[in-house]
């Protein structure tokens, strides 16, 4: 018993998430929370909400680029599985004989895409959104639009938020399930970047992405978002 405890606390840790991936993840969480709070309670400072929207777009574009060139567990090619393989993983999970993943498991991988997609829809629809009278808050691309188009953007912005809330609840429930039932400490791993070594199905240890490339992706994301808005205006 004592031996097991000692050996488990001394179990070798391996890299699961590189720095840029973790920093991105928590930056997106903070920005989305801030965007929600600033809209609900910060009506007197609408500029803050608008800037949160730009930040969400930059972060999402960064993540799309990072999914191509980033750390091994951040790459889409590494964690996006075919629908059948994803369903099989889900069934295995229900039977309690699922494979273990260092990075995203097949279901979690698709959840990443859903969360990124909804964040993108929020950011994009916000660019075209404005209040009914266009006097209080206006997205940078709303001025040239008809009232009907702004109203459509408004509905999309709100419905995407409802869907995002549902996705966030599912995401948190899944993390809680893995933590409590499966005893996998997923949240700490997303902070420290490390997980205990074991027979993971995807890879034994992650290869971190290059910091230079991460900065390059962030600059490129900024250029894509601001350039896109500038061209569309």
């Amino acid at each position: 018993m004592t031996d097991a405890t000692v050996s488990s606390s001394a179990a070798p840790q391996v890299l699961a998430w590189d720095g840029p991936t973790r920093l991105f993840k928590w930056a997106l969480v903070a920005t989305v929370v801030s965007a929600w709070v600033s809209n609900k309670y910060g009506a007197g400072n609408v500029a803050w909400h608008v800037w949160n929207g730009y930040a969400v777009l930059v972060l999402v574009v960064f993540r799309l680029l990072w999914g191509l060139v980033g750390g091994s567990t951040a790459r889409f090619a590494g964690f996006l599985r075919a629908p059948l393989a994803t369903i099989r993983y889900g069934l295995d999970l229900l039977r309690g004989r699922e494979a273990h993943y260092l990075g995203h498991n097949p279901l979690g991988g698709w959840m990443v895409m859903v969360l990124l997609g909804l964040a993108a829809v929020m950011g994009l629809s916000g660019l075209f959104n404005a209040d009914t009278d266009r006097m209080i808050i206006e997205g940078p691309l709303s001025a040239k639009l008809s009232d009907a188009a702004v109203s459509l953007a408004h509905r999309i912005h709100h419905q995407a938020f409802d869907l995002l809330l549902i996705a966030i609840v599912l995401h948190l429930a899944a993390v809680a399930f893995h933590s409590v039932v499966k005893k996998e400490r997923l949240a700490p791993a997303m902070v420290t970047g490390r997980k205990p070594a074991r027979d993971y199905a995807d890879m034994a240890a992650a290869t971190p992405g290059s910091i230079g490339l991460a900065i390059g992706c962030l600059v490129a994301a900024g250029l894509i978002v601001w350039g896109g808005i500038w061209i569309a205006r």
Binding site: N39, G42, A43, G44, N45, V46, A47, D131, T132, M135, I136, I137, S151, H154
Partner: peptide, 18 residues
């Protein structure tokens, strides 16, 4: 001035049906 306008937004968000 934006602090004053914030009241318009707060009220329209919750109590005005588009």
């Amino acid at each position: 001035f934006p602090k004053v306008l914030g009241n318009c937004k707060a009220c329209h968000d919750d109590y005005r049906v588009k």
